[in-house]
């Protein structure tokens, strides 16, 4: 099966929208739901200012397809390679230099939640439900969920959520730091789009990528290195803006 059958991409006014399209629950047929090469192709456009990832219909995503997992389980090398593809994709998403927002309506489980946690910002509708239910099937998160979650909610809350396998609602998710903004019922995408427009409209792409780079540096580099980079990026923008003002005066 062509894995890209279950994901669509469109551009709305400089904002790219990735849609997990496998209704009703938008299950991921394979962990690497978009090959990185195709993702790059979609997002390489020089004019793109941000990305939103959402689910088709009512839900964000119920996560991975267990049948695929169990069928490939007795070929460990195949399963591992599938999981690696998924991991590579999430790593690529995390390191994007334009902002990517997860727009979460209703169900967001397992690998669906791992995708959301890899994004830069999470908007959840008031009726969203989040969970790592893998332990109920004698499994565990396999695409970085256990590594990412403590960064948001701390060790003890993460242990409870992953071991317990219980769902939490949007308000509790916000309290735990898993979600950044709460949208009205079923309105996560609309909210995310408005937020994205406020963050990107009228801004040169270079301003956006410079800020995102500087933010990425805050966790990748030492403070001294990150600072030196920040002033360099700033000076380059200042030079552009000074030129822009000179040209508009002339």
């Amino acid at each position: 099966m062509n894995p890209i059958d279950n994901v669509t991409f469109e551009v709305l006014d400089e904002i790219g929208v990735i849609c997990l399209d496998n209704p009703p629950a938008n299950e991921l047929v394979i962990p690497g739901f978009i090959p990185v090469a195709i993702f790059k192709e979609w997002t390489d456009s020089a004019s793109l200012k941000g990305l939103i990832i959402k689910g088709a219909g009512k839900n964000f995503s119920a996560g991975g397809n267990l049948d695929v997992i169990f069928k490939t389980a007795d070929h460990p090398d195949i399963l591992q390679s599938l999981m690696r593809d998924g991991l590579e994709l999430l790593k690529f998403i995390r390191r994007l230099e334009i902002p990517i927002v997860a727009a979460i309506n209703r169900v967001c489980f397992g690998a669906g939640l791992e995708i959301a946690l890899a994004c830069h910002i999470r908007v959840a509708s008031a009726n969203a439900l989040l969970a790592f239910p893998e332990s109920n099937q004698n499994l565990m998160p396999g695409m970085g969920g256990t590594a990412m979650l403590p960064g948001f909610s701390g060790f003890s809350q993460s242990a409870k959520m992953i071991l317990g396998g219980d769902m939490i609602n949007a308000a509790d998710a916000k309290e735990l730091g898993l979600v950044d903004f709460i949208a009205p019922k079923d309105q996560a995408f609309e909210y995310a789009l408005t937020l994205m427009q406020k963050m990107t409209h009228g801004r040169p792409v270079k301003v956006i990528t410079s800020i995102m780079k500087a933010l990425k540096n805050s966790s990748d580099l030492s403070q001294d290195e990150a600072m030196a980079e920040e002033t360099k990026l700033f000076c380059s923008l200042a030079l552009d803006e000074a030129m822009r003002r000179k040209t508009s005066e002339a």
Binding site: V207, I211, A214, L215, N217, Q223, M227, E230, L237, R244
Partner: peptide, 11 residues
């Protein structure tokens, strides 16, 4: 105004 914080504000 097409700039960014440049004195460590981002970090």
């Amino acid at each position: 105004f097409n700039l960014m914080p440049g004195l460590g504000g981002i970090q």
